[in-house]
Design a protein around this nucleic acid. Structure first.
Lengths: 216, 216
DNA sequence: AAATTTAACTTAACAGTGTTAAGTAAATGA
DNA sequence: TCATTTACTTAACACTGTTAAGTTAAATTT
């Protein structure tokens, strides 16, 4: 069995070598200019060598997408210690926004690009976008706790969670695609994208806060 | 002057010919497989002929993006007749969602892709994402009217409009990138993406409705 | 009417992309 | 030692956007 282990270990090592090179190019030069050939030359391999370890480019992009979710987890971990559910929810939104701003490339591959989802469809394994579902589940659970404290309506927490996620994701994706800049400028107030993002989020939080115990 | 006019008319005609071919491929085969070569062969030209009428691919994609905003306008025009501002706002959200579902490719190029924004940055004309700003302005104006009727807080309408846009855009982009499918399945309730979208939007509307005159 | 210029294209080519098939050299097993 | 597997590389295909140079016909000028 030792030989077997050694073999799979070796295989895993090279996979990691390739993935790390891909990640490096990805964060330094962006997705657009991360080609199979560049990844290969980064580790001194020929382009086709990658195909011995990954099925195709979609496969390595999917792994990158998974790396992104690992990174997001390290951002969200500390939130588990926040006792008050609404405080936790606010921090969740903040952290999500920060993650998107600090790692726009990862955010893109995780939440904006079609490729990783297509890869999931083509590889009908039992895992169905685990990372995304886990994060969404965290929002749902937190919302449900908030409801018990009088926040939001008594609606299905899934729907409310989707509103929250949709809003924050919407802001992040408009920010990343520079559309927040474009609507902010020349608008008398002359607000920067960052200021718009900040103010919109704050305004949303206080809107939810103010509607506590309205109970529809 | 007649010669001049004839010349520019001819030039405009061919530009339209190219753009229509691009649009056809765009809606029938999607952005991914709309290449300069396919556009050219669609109208019986050689690939390089396009470059006599458009600077580069980004240029024709930008025009496609403009076509999208023309189309969106035809969707939004009828809303001007809705007197009650909150009714108009609800209809605006609905219409926006419908547009995204009926024309996902146009929606992508208008609100999700980076290319058209890069094109704007590289062509420093006086127009700064006119279509986007006009639509966002429509939301702001409607929100402002809603505020006068006791809806929302007395916050800057720009911030509230951005929340609304962010939420609806977030839902649309999660829908288009099939992420709503992925989080909806296997979730006991087993909701389809369409049902999730629908319920989240309805829940949001009734949340805003219920908080009327809370006045923070 | 003839010569020249300009307009509207095409052909060939470059540099890049993802990907497959075939070939090679070294390590391993019998 | 010989055969086989492992781990790669080289060459090639079919694309992509794009540029430079060449062609052909129409318009303009002389």
């Amino acid at each position: 069995m030792k030989g077997e282990d050694k073999k799979t270990n070796r295989k895993e090592d090279v996979r990691k070598l390739i993935l790390d090179a891909a990640k490096k190019l990805f964060v330094e030069e962006g997705y657009q200019s991360t080609s199979m050939r560049k990844i290969a030359s980064e580790i001194g391999y020929s382009p086709t060598a990658i195909y011995l370890y990954y099925k195709d480019k979609g496969d390595v992009v999917y792994e990158l997408h998974q790396e992104g979710f690992s990174l997001l987890k390290t951002y969200l971990m500390p939130l588990a210690t926040v006792e008050a559910p609404f405080e936790r929810l606010k921090a969740l939104g903040r952290t999500y926004l920060n993650f998107a701003k600090e790692h726009p490339d990862f955010y893109e591959v995780m939440f904006m690009m079609k490729e990783p989802m297509v890869h999931l469809d083509n590889n009908p394994t039992n895992e169905m976008w685990e990372g995304g579902k886990e994060m969404f589940g965290f929002i749902i659970a937190t919302i449900a706790e908030c409801q018990q404290q009088g926040y939001f309506s008594k609606d299905n927490p899934q729907y409310i969670a989707l509103q929250a996620w949709g809003l924050v994701h919407g802001l992040c994706s408009l920010y990343i695609t520079t559309r927040l800049d474009k609507v902010g400028m020349e608008n008398i107030s002359e607000l920067s994208a960052d200021a718009l993002l900040e103010n919109a989020y704050k305004s949303f939080v206080s809107f939810v806060e103010s509607s506590k115990n309205s109970k529809r």
